[in-house]
């Protein structure tokens, strides 16, 4: 064996070391990127909102503001726009109240297993519509669902729907009754409103156009 001239390329030790180095480097890079990303996706504060500081994930008190989703020339896609103050379920929520509400909403979202029918931020199941921008959906804002549920505001209509979804069917495929209470429904709506204010780099694309495009019907077939 020792007399044979052997190439380093067939050396097991060489490949083992290379594998270790490559893996190590990838892990270190991932750690570094993670630190950076975690910083950018931590929730903002109520002060940020008051001072107009943009955060990728705004504070829970974003529920006290009007939210829009509009094309941004500079970034080349749609981004959430946080506007004037508006009441949410008839009141303005303090930072603590809003945080507690969001927490309850997120817990309920998990407890009721929403993600096994819907997608959230595009991840989940494909049996029901994506909820990323549900708060801004034309369906809730053009009078359809407020009409069906007989409520005046979007938040009340959503809460009513969530409590008795199968009483307000829009298609043969219905959302089942998950035993959602009034408090849970309010919290869920807060969770959805907050999610719609997350900067998702333009996903879902052309969502701000969908009301206009729906009028024309689909051109694909």
């Amino acid at each position: 064996m020792s007399e044979k001239k052997v190439s380093v390329w067939t050396s097991i030790t060489f490949w083992r070391r290379s594998a270790a180095w490559v893996t190590g480097t990838a892990v270190v890079l991932l750690m570094w990127l993670t630190f950076n990303t975690i910083g950018q996706i931590s929730m903002g504060t109520d002060e940020d909102l008051q001072n107009g500081v943009k955060k990728r994930i705004p504070a829970p008190t974003v529920i006290n503001y009007k939210i829009d989703y509009a094309y941004d020339e500079k970034r080349g896609h749609e981004v959430p726009v946080i506007g004037e103050k508006e009441l949410f379920f008839g009141k303005e929520w303090s930072a603590d109240e809003a945080a507690e509400l969001l927490r309850h909403g997120k817990l309920t979202q998990q407890a009721k297993n929403c993600m096994n029918c819907h997608t959230l931020l595009g991840n989940g199941a494909y049996y029901a519509p994506d909820l990323t921008k549900a708060w801004l959906d034309p369906k809730w804002n053009d009078g359809t669902m407020t009409g069906i549920t007989g409520k005046d505001t979007v938040e009340e209509a959503m809460a009513e729907f969530l409590m008795h979804p199968s009483q307000f069917p829009t298609h043969a495929r219905m959302m089942p009754n998950l035993g959602i209470t009034k408090e849970e429904a309010i919290a869920l709506v807060a969770f959805l409103k907050h999610m719609s204010a997350i900067d998702t780099n333009g996903f879902p694309r052309n969502f701000s156009q969908s009301a206009k495009r729906l009028e024309g019907g689909t051109h694909a077939w």
């Binding site: 994506d130 879902p204 495009r213 729906l214």
Partner: peptide
């Protein structure tokens, strides 16, 4: 074509 959302879905 439709840009996503409940009805488009």
């Amino acid at each position: 074509d439709l840009g996503g959302g409940w009805d488009a879905y």
